[in-house]
Simulated scan of single mutants.
Amino acid sequence: MDATSPAQTRAMAAESAVVRRYVHRYGPLAWVHAATPGAPGARTWHYWWHAHLLHVLRDAEEHRPDPRRARLLRALHRGITVRTLGRWTTPFHDDVAWMTLALQRYDVHDRRIDRLTRRLHDAIDPAVGALPWAIDSSLYNAPANGPAAIALAWSAHRGAAVDLDAWVAVTLDDPATGLVRDGVEHGVVRSELWTYNQGVAIGSALALAEGAPDADARDAHEARAAAIVRAVARWCAADDGLFPAAGGGDGGLFAGILARYLAEAAVWFRAHAADDDHLEVAATAAGLVRRNADALSEGRADGLFPADPRRPARATGDDLDLSVQLGAWITLEAAVDLERAVTS
């Protein structure tokens, strides 16, 4: 694919801005700070933001191979090793799942992946049938169980992934909207709707459809992914297809995660176009990604993307957060995936 295509050009600009503004090198080590230098909390180190930085850098390396990026990835790996004292873990199971997915993105055998997937598997509460959000937490939520299901689907614990995906569907799917609610705590469902929860539900369904033991199982997983894509489209229809914004901080990553898995859905349903319904789902998912990528690009100003695609970027507040810029970059790399799928 042409590295100077419109989608590639936008993604390259986002990558360059993130690396220049947020990545700090310390000899052979590197890590990122949470916000633009000088902003409040700029020097905070976030484990799960690093997971998404690794993941999107690997996306970029697949889209635009460059030895300089490969060196940066190695430096970031060393930085994470130092900052986590070699453990590569945190008490938060959602964060561990994100890091596992980032490492799995390399498509290589790594003892860290085995250790992290085993940790996720062993943390499942048999009395609930799901992962708690963190060690000793009473919250069982989509942000932990969705990415964990994807990670476990690509591990020796695929059966657990099937169970986690089913738990989310039974416990958290909202029958009124078809969207995935946030979680359940002490038997009470937390009804908040976040973009990334929809994304990981699509991702886990597709991960399970890939390599399903039979056609019926594959069809069931495909049907779940398709239903959530359509639910997201209905959710966003009143706002011309734009994803709900979640501000800065952790929320800055939410929409980008949805874009990543919508792009996966678009590619999957186009490649497995058994009927017109599959093509309709592919077109719907692709349209959502492109609409949001376009809006983010149109709102860019002074090298920053907006936390909310409905307005231009500004050099204050949430737009200074790494998470916001990283989320936009993830969305733009997702648009590259769509462009590659059309031209391949």
Rank of each mutant, 00 (worst) to 15 (best):
T171L: 01
I135R: 09
A335F: 02
A217Q: 06
A13D: 03
L279F: 09
A226M: 05
A246R: 13
D163H: 13
V162I: 08
S344T: 11
D214S: 09
A255K: 14
P37H: 09
A14Y: 00
A144P: 14
W98E: 02
A217E: 12
L279H: 15
A42C: 10
R290P: 01
P65A: 09
E15F: 11
G248W: 01
G287F: 12
P132R: 01
R158Q: 00
A226P: 01
P67M: 04
V189N: 12
L120H: 04
A266I: 03
Y106E: 15
H278Q: 08
T316Q: 12
G159T: 11
G27L: 11
E339G: 07
G248C: 03
D66I: 07
P91T: 14
I150R: 00
A283E: 06
A127P: 13
R311Q: 13
R190Q: 12
D165C: 15
R68K: 14
V189Q: 14
A226R: 02
R10P: 12
W235R: 10
G299P: 01
V267E: 03
D125I: 15
G287P: 14
F305R: 03
D94Y: 05
S323R: 13
R190N: 14
D337A: 13
G41P: 01
R71K: 10
V229K: 07
A205P: 03
W329F: 02
Y196L: 01
R310S: 10
Y22E: 07
A11D: 02
A255P: 12
G178V: 07
D94G: 04
V162H: 07
E339M: 14
R25Q: 09
V23S: 10
A7N: 00
E62G: 13
G199H: 07
A285P: 00
A223E: 04
R158I: 00
A13Y: 10
P147E: 07
A14H: 00
A315Q: 08
D125T: 04
H24R: 07
L101G: 00
A30W: 11
H272E: 09
W31R: 04
E185I: 04
R190D: 06
D173G: 08
P312I: 12
R234T: 14
A176E: 01
A274M: 11
W48Y: 03
L179M: 03
E62Q: 15
W31D: 00
M12Y: 11
G129C: 07
H33Y: 15
E339F: 12
L152I: 04
L322M: 08
W154T: 08
R260W: 08
L242M: 06
